[in-house]
Each structure stands twice: as C-alpha cells, then as structure tokens.
Amino acid sequence: MKKLLFVQSHPPHGSLFGQEGLDAILAGSAFIECGVLFLGDGIYQLLKDQQTTALASKNFSVSYQALHDYGVESLFCSAADLLARNLTVADLIVTPTLLDATELAAVLRDYDGILDF
C-alpha cells in the first residue's frame, strides 16, 4: 500500500495554503496512510494560542489536534527550522518528530507520493 507525505511550507495566515493543505490531509487520511512534514515557515501553523479573530482569519490550526483521530500519526519538522525561529516543541499544539537534514531526506524517500502546499 502506498503512503503519502503532505508538506506544509506556508505560514498559517496570509494565504489559504495551510488551511486548504489541511483539508487535503484530512481527505487523504480517508483513503491512505498519510504523514505531514512542516517545513520552513510552515511550522508556524502549529503555534499554540493563535489569536486570529482580529485578522478575520480562521484558526484552522486547532484541527491539527484531531489528526490523531483521523489516523495521521506521523508528523515531522526540521529541528533547524524550529531553532531558526526560536521555537521549541513546547510552543506547538502537537508534537512532531524533529529531524536533522539526513533524517529529513530519509523521510522524503520513504513516502511514495509527496503533495506540496
């Protein structure tokens, strides 16, 4: 059976890449084993306590907490991307597996298909 990796590389607000990417992850989870890689500014999608009311923007990030219920267990991010943004996993609403560059390459190789948002 194939498995798909969804790559979230945009910050949560300012475009719909994150929200529509998450929609695709939820759809994918109904069909196939899925993983999610948060890359670069995409890691901001997992920030705790986002206050989006003043932006008139939807706080879709809370739905990441439900991924477990959809059977999506494999969440990844680059340890260097977190460090570069002065973040730790304690700042995030879920706990992704932290990867170094070699491990990141291995994850990309491990999946049969990659959908980039």
Binding site: L4, F31, G113
Partner: peptide, 16 residues
C-alpha cells in the same frame, strides 16, 4: 479532494 488523492495514488508521478 478524493480526485487529488486518487490521482496521487494511481499516477506514477505527481507534479505540483
């Protein structure tokens, strides 16, 4: 979105 997932599963390559 099922069409996106189906395509990714059944095509040999996905180009975004």
């Amino acid at each position: 979105l099922g069409q996106l997932i189906d395509g990714t599963i059944n095509a040999d390559r996905t180009m975004t």
